[in-house]
Amino acid sequence: MSTSALLALLMVVGLLTFLYRYAMIGFFASRSLPAWLHALCRHIAPASFAALTASALFVSGGDVQFAFDSPRPWAALVAVIVAWRTRNVLATIAAGMAALYLLKLLF
C-alpha cells in the first residue's frame, strides 16, 4: 500500500473511531443504546481477535497451512496455556516469546 493510501486509511479509521466515541455523549446524548447494538458490541472483540489469531498462525499468502514443523504454532499453544492459567496479558506475551526462542533452537 502506498504511503498516501495508508494515510487516507488511518484518517478514515481515526474519524470513525472519534464518531463512535462521541456518538452517545454528542449526537444521541439523550437516548440510550439499543439492546441489539449492545449485544453486538459485546461479541466484536472476541470475534475479531479469534479471526486475526487464526489468520496470523495458519494463513500464509491466501493458503491455509498447518505448519506444525515450525515453532510458531507451538509457541502460540504455550501462550494459550499461560493465558488460561494466569489471565495475565504480559505473562502471556513473555511466555509465548520465550517459547518461540527455545523452540527455534530445537527446530
Binding site: 472483540a45 472476541p46 486475526l52 489471565r87 502471556t92 506475551i93 509465548g96 516469546m97
Partner: peptide
C-alpha cells in the same frame, strides 16, 4: 510475533460467556 500473542491473551480474557 508479540502481536498475535497479544490477541491470544486478550481473547482468553474475553471468553467468559457462551455467546
Amino acid at each position: 510475533f508479540a502481536v498475535p500473542l497479544t490477541f491470544i491473551a486478550l481473547l482468553t480474557l474475553l471468553l467468559r460467556e457462551r455467546a
